[in-house]
Amino acid sequence: MVEESYVIYAKNIVKRFGNIVALNNVTFKLRKKEIVGVVGDNGAGKSTLMKILFGIHKPDRGELYIKGKLYPELTPKKAYELGIVLIHQERTLCPHHSVWRNIFMARELTGRFGFLKIDEMKKRSEKALQELGLISRIESVDTPANYLSGGYQQGVQISRALVFDADVVILDEPTNALSLKEVQKVLEYVKQLKERGKSGIMISHNIYHVYPVVDRFVILNKGMVVGEFWKKDLNLEDLSHIMLSIAETGKIPPEYSKINLAEKPDSKEVEIK
C-alpha cells in the first residue's frame, strides 16, 4: 500500500469551521528524512492542516495515515507517542510558570506514580536552550515565561521539539518574532533534523526562511494544494514568482505546470534519492 511508505499521509482532507472551508480536499505526504515546506498566504489553511496532523482538530472528511497506520481518532497524546511534535504558531506558554515547566508541558518526565523528575527536566531544558543558542547569560530555566522576551519565548517553544528527539517535527511559523541571529539558529536546527534521520515540516509565509532548509514545497491557497515542487526543480526566484502570481491571480504561471507535482497526480509517488 502506498500509504505505508510515508511517515505521514493525509488523504483528501476536508475541514470546515462553520461556513469557512479551511481545507478543501487536501492531500499531504511526508517521507522519512524529508523536510517539507508548507507555504501560502495567511488563512490558506496551513495551521489547520498541522493541527489535524497533530490530532487537535478532527477532519470532517479524509484519512490520516501515520507510519502506515490509519488513525481515525488521533489525539495529541497519541501523536506524541507516535513521535510527532507540533510547535504552534500561537504562543502556547504558561506565563507564570518556569521555562523548564513550559518546555515539558504535557510531556513531563515522570518516575514512579507519575511524580515529576524535576532535576532531569531542568538539565535537559538547559541543554536544549543551549543547543538553540537562545539562552542568555541572565536567564535560567527557573525563570517564569512572562519574564522572557518574544525571541526567548519562541525559543522555549522550539525547545519542546528538541528535548524529545521527535521523529517528526512540525514548526508552524517558528521564525516569527525572532531576530536575524535567532532565525539562523532555527534554520540550522531544521537542516540538521534530516542528518539525524528525522522528518520535518516547516511553515512560514516568508519563503526566504523556508527555501534554504526544505526538500519540497507544498503551496496552499484558500484551503487547496495548488502547487507542489521539488526544490531541485525551482530556484528562489521561481518560487517568489509563483507566490506573487498566486497572490495576484490565484494561479500558478503555466510555465511551471510541467514540474508542478500537484498537477500531475501520477508522477507524485516518485521516491527521493
Binding site: I56, P76, E90, L93, A106
Partner: peptide
C-alpha cells in the same frame, strides 16, 4: 493558559 494547555495536548 487553558488554550495553550489544550493545544499542547
Amino acid at each position: 493558559n487553558r488554550l495553550a494547555a489544550k493545544m499542547v495536548g
